[in-house]
């Protein structure tokens, strides 16, 4: 149908910067976990937060989500919202039992 020549081509430099950021975040999360042992629940939260930042970076830059039409982001949002709802309802069940 439509031609595909207008697709965005991500530069090597952008991929490399993404990679660098991901590696830094990885060492940060290991550092927090190994040396920040007293944080307890807070350390779970930081670990999940860093993982989410990393996942977003992978999706956004490596997987081109940044350059895709809005529909892809909307679909992704629906998927994540559903999953969040599953987590919330199961948590409610287990917390109030």
């Amino acid at each position: 149908m439509e031609n595909n020549k207008h697709e965005h081509i991500t530069s090597y430099k952008e991929h490399f910067s993404t990679w660098l950021a991901l590696i830094l975040l990885t060492f940060m999360t290991v550092f927090v976990s190994v040396f920040g042992a007293d944080l307890r629940t807070l350390s779970v939260a930081t670990a999940m937060l860093i993982a989410t930042i990393k996942a977003t970076a992978v999706a956004y830059y490596f997987m081109h989500l940044k350059y895709e039409p809005k529909i892809y982001k909307a679909m992704m949002a629906v998927v994540l919202a559903l999953f969040a709802f599953f987590m919330i309802m199961i948590t409610i069940d287990y917390l109030t039992r």
Partner: peptide, 22 residues
């Protein structure tokens, strides 16, 4: 349809508040 699965489990031992919401 994704938000109502718990209504199959009212008598399973699921918690009261979860059952109300479902």
């Amino acid at each position: 349809g994704y938000f109502v699965w718990g209504h199959h489990m009212f008598t399973s031992g699921m918690s009261g508040p979860a059952a109300y919401i479902f």
